[in-house]
C-alpha cells in the first residue's frame, strides 16, 4: 500500500497557516523533496496527502499527524529528512513510520487530544488554578462558541477527560475528531473568564492525538 505516517510540528509563524494552505504547502514540499508521492485518479489529480485533524489557525501543534501515500516503497526516516529540507519555516517532521495495511486512516481514528495553554501573566495563575479545579469538580459545563446564528452554548463537561494547572500552564485532555470535537480555545476562554485573565495573551498548543484503545486512549503515532 505504501502508506506512511509522519508526525510533525507546526509552530512559530506556521501557526497562522490555514488548513487548505497547509495541505498545499505540504504537498509542494513533497514535490520539492522529490518524493514519489501517489496521486488521486480523475481529471484533477492531486497528491495523496492528508492530515489527521485540522488545527485551529493560530494554535501550535507539537504532535500533528500527516498521512502520505507513495507510488513506491520509501524509507520513512529518509523521507522525514528530505521533507525537513523543503518545508516552510515552522513546519518540521519529527518522525515517520510505515502504516500497516490494516491500520485505519488517522482522520478516522482520532478521538482525543492533549492540549496546553501557556499563561504569560503570572498574577492570574492562582485564580486560573481555582477555575480549573472548578471545571473538574463540576457536573456540567456550558461553553460558548460563535456561529453564524450568533453565540451558541453547548454542554462540554463529558468531553473533558482531564484538566489541571501546572506551573504557568493549563493542560487538558478533551474529545477531538470527526465525531465530537471540543474547541480547546472555548474551554480556555471560559477558564479565563472565571479567573479574570485575558484570553488574547495566552498561547495554546495541541500536544498529541489519540485513538480509542481498550476503553482508554492510545497515541496514534
Amino acid at each position: 500500500m505504501n502508506k506512511y505516517l509522519f508526525k510533525y510540528e507546526k509552530t512559530g509563524n506556521a501557526r497562522f497557516i490555514g488548513h487548505l494552505d497547509l495541505l498545499r504547502a505540504f504537498g509542494r514540499a513533497v514535490s520539492r523533496a522529490g518524493l514519489p508521492i501517489a496521486y488521486s485518479e480523475g481529471f484533477n489529480p492531486h497528491r495523496l496527502v492528508s492530515f489527521a485533524l485540522p488545527l485551529p489557525v493560530g494554535m501550535s501543534g507539537l504532535g500533528e499527524i500527516a498521512a502520505l501515500r507513495m507510488a513506491e516503497p520509501v524509507e520513512p526516516r529518509e523521507c522525514a529528512g528530505a521533507l525537513n529540507a523543503c518545508l516552510p519555516e515552522g513546519l518540521r517532521v519529527l518522525a515517520g513510520r510505515e502504516m500497516p495495511r490494516e491500520e485505519k486512516e488517522p482522520a478516522a481514528l482520532v478521538r482525543f487530544a492533549d492540549f496546553r495553554a501557556d499563561f504569560a501573566d503570572f498574577s492570574v495563575l492562582e485564580s486560573v488554578e481555582r477555575a480549573v479545579g472548578a471545571v473538574l469538580a463540576a457536573n456540567s459545563l456550558l461553553l460558548e462558541r460563535e456561529s453564524k446564528k450568533g453565540v451558541l452554548s453547548f454542554e462540554a463537561r463529558q468531553d473533558i477527560y482531564d484538566i489541571y494547572a501546572k506551573g504557568s500552564s493549563v493542560f487538558a485532555r478533551v474529545s477531538q475528531g470527526s465525531a465530537v470535537n471540543l474547541r480547546f480555545d472555548a474551554l480556555i476562554a471560559r477558564v479565563c473568564r472565571d479567573a479574570g485573565a485575558e484570553p488574547d495573551k495566552i498561547k495554546c498548543a495541541r500536544l498529541a492525538l489519540y485513538k480509542e484503545a481498550d476503553g482508554g486512549a492510545e497515541e496514534i503515532f
Binding site: F16, G18, A25, R32, C86, E89
Partner: peptide, 18 residues
C-alpha cells in the same frame, strides 16, 4: 503576534515562505 489572532488570513502577514 498579539494581533494576528484578530484578523482574517493571518498567514498573509508572517512570511517564512519557501
Amino acid at each position: 503576534d498579539g494581533i494576528l489572532g484578530q484578523v482574517q488570513k493571518p498567514a498573509r502577514y508572517v512570511g517564512g515562505e519557501v
